[in-house]
């Protein structure tokens, strides 16, 4: 959790914390190894790697949060509808969800990002849409379990309308596993954004993103390895932190996982 907070602080305060402008080039400082002037070294255009890593945290965290928000905004209502209404509605939504889950996540995200055009926003939309079926399936499964509970029967017996039962009685009770899943999905979305940026389909240069920094760094791995080490380490630490938070939340909310 500490690392997540640290990265959030870095992302928010990057303009004040970063020692230099992340896009400012310097022909006299090309591929300089880490030093007092440039703690993480410089890249192929003489830009400060530490400053780019700090600004890159913005793109990664934004991608994680926005993508998962898109997935939840689409997936939770559809899953709630399928699980609560049942019948043909559920049948059609479930078949569509199965089909969407058959499309490999990264391939679908690449295809969507390619069709929408390369940019951070389109990458976030592509990742969000690609991850939506997971939230539909999870919400539906939880709703199916909750809607037969006594308190839902009671709410129905006192004459509550269906929309009220679904939103006020069922939805709050299916949220805990969705929160766990969203934390893990943020970790997956951060890797997916880095992957798309690595392929040139996410954040566009010269704006900094960890994935695009690694894409450039792979060409200089023999004479400027620091260009690859810091952005990769940042992705690893941030994703690890979200995975640990997700695991911790799951253990706390579901004792069977302990």
């Amino acid at each position: 959790m500490g690392f997540v907070i640290l990265f959030v602080i870095i992302a928010i305060f990057a303009p004040w914390l970063a020692p230099q402008d992340p896009v400012e080039t310097s022909w006299s400082a090309i591929r300089k190894s880490p030093s007092a002037a440039h703690w993480f070294g410089t890249d192929e255009l003489g830009r400060d790697v530490l400053s780019r890593v700090m600004w890159g945290a913005r793109a990664s965290l934004l991608a994680g949060l926005v993508s998962v928000s898109i997935s939840m905004a689409l997936g939770v209502p559809i899953g709630l509808l399928a699980g609560y209404v049942g019948g043909w509605t559920d049948g059609i939504i479930s078949r569509l969800t199965d089909s969407a889950l058959a499309l490999p996540f990264l391939i679908l995200a690449i295809a969507l990002a390619a069709f929408l055009g390369p940019s951070l926003m389109n990458a976030m939309i592509a990742i969000g849409v690609s991850a939506t079926p997971i939230f539909i399936r999870l919400t539906r499964a939880q709703v199916l379990a909750v809607k037969v509970e006594d308190f839902v029967e009671a709410a129905r017996a006192v004459g509550n309308p269906h929309w009220r039962i679904a939103l006020r009685h069922v939805l709050p009770n299916v949220l805990p596993p969705l929160i766990v899943q969203s934390t893990l999905a943020i970790a997956a979305a951060i890797i997916a954004e880095a992957s798309l940026s690595f392929l040139g389909l996410g954040q566009q240069p010269p704006a900094p993103s960890w994935g695009s920094m690694l894409n450039t760094a792979k060409n200089y791995v023999d004479n400027a390895p620091w260009m690859a080490i810091w952005p990769g380490l940042s992705i690893f630490l941030l994703v690890l932190s979200f995975n640990l938070v997700g695991d911790g939340l799951r253990d706390a909310l579901d004792p069977r996982h302990k």
């Binding site: 791995v221 390895p225 990769g232 992705i235 690893f236 994703v239 690890l240």
Partner: peptide
Amino acid sequence: ALWGLSTPNFWLGILMILLFSVSLGWLPA
């Protein structure tokens, strides 16, 4: 397991090239 789940494979690839190809020269990059 946590390392495996949290490491982007393209970064691991670059690290392995750095170690086994550039530094040790054992494997083609």
